[in-house]
């Protein structure tokens, strides 16, 4: 279904543009990091792309084949929402909604739980897992669908460094299976580790798009340079 094309996309609340006239084409392959300060509009832009919000102006189109079928894209949120049932049942729930055959769901769910290291927690209630385990479960639930595109909204913002590392390595593994990664973060280290290209947002506007290495070495936009400097004051 990629590439994803945004044409003059705006999202306004009470007359104020949270997203201000963003045009961009996001293709298959490189991991795209949406970077920006708090309130820059990263999460809103991601929800627009995923279809949870509708733009108030402009249009968003999936240019490739397969249309914008829901089951071909998945999203992992900053704070995972777990249903009051077992870890396994949470994954199966997503698979059933995506139309997988009942017999296939259980097997597929167990495979993906193993891939994120939660096979021993499969039958435990999801809501009493630790924060890190819940986020890995959220990744498993999304990964199980075999999405072409995976959106991640600050997936490690609430986690301690160890749990964040686990999540990062799972994201790398999902990318390695051919899934396009689109992720927001305000963590520069993470953007460097996980990203191939950066979309830099400032006050709802897309001010720079660059390969990761070039972005950090020589940001073109003044806002981007200032952001990097603020985040890495010792440089």
């Amino acid at each position: 279904m990629l590439p994803l094309e945004l044409k003059d996309v705006c999202f306004a609340v009470n007359g104020r543009n949270i997203i201000d006239c963003v045009s961009v084409q996001i293709g298959a392959g490189p991991r795209t990091i949406i970077l920006g300060a708090n309130g820059a509009g990263k999460s809103v832009l991601m929800r627009l792309c995923h279809g949870l919000l509708q733009p108030t102006a402009g249009e968003i189109k999936w240019r490739g084949g397969n249309g914008n079928r829901r089951s071909r894209q998945a999203m992992v949120f900053q704070r995972p929402v777990m249903l009051r049932r077992s870890a396994l049942a949470n994954v199966v729930y997503g698979l059933k909604l995506a139309g997988f055959a009942a017999g296939e769901c259980d097997l597929r769910a167990r495979d993906v739980l193993e891939a994120v290291g939660l096979e021993r927690q499969a039958d435990r209630p999801a809501r009493i897992l630790s924060g890190g385990e819940q986020q890995r479960l959220a990744l498993a639930r999304a990964w199980a669908l075999g999405p072409e595109v995976l959106f991640l909204d600050e997936p490690t913002a609430n986690l301690d460094p160890g749990a964040a590392r686990d999540v990062e390595s799972i994201i790398a593994a999902i990318h390695a299976t051919g899934t396009k990664i689109i992720m927001t973060t305000h963590n520069l280290g993470q953007a460097r580790r996980l990203g191939d290209e950066i979309l830099f947002l400032s006050q709802g506007r897309l001010v720079e798009r660059a390969p990761v290495e070039r972005f950090f070495r020589a940001p073109a936009a003044a806002e981007a340079a200032a952001f990097i400097k603020d985040e890495l004051p010792w440089q």
Binding site: L52, F77, R141
Partner: peptide, 20 residues
Amino acid sequence: EQLRSLGAQRLTASVTLLWD
């Protein structure tokens, strides 16, 4: 957001919420 992201329609969502 999570249920809509997974593709749940309102009826499915209602049943899920009643159970949860």
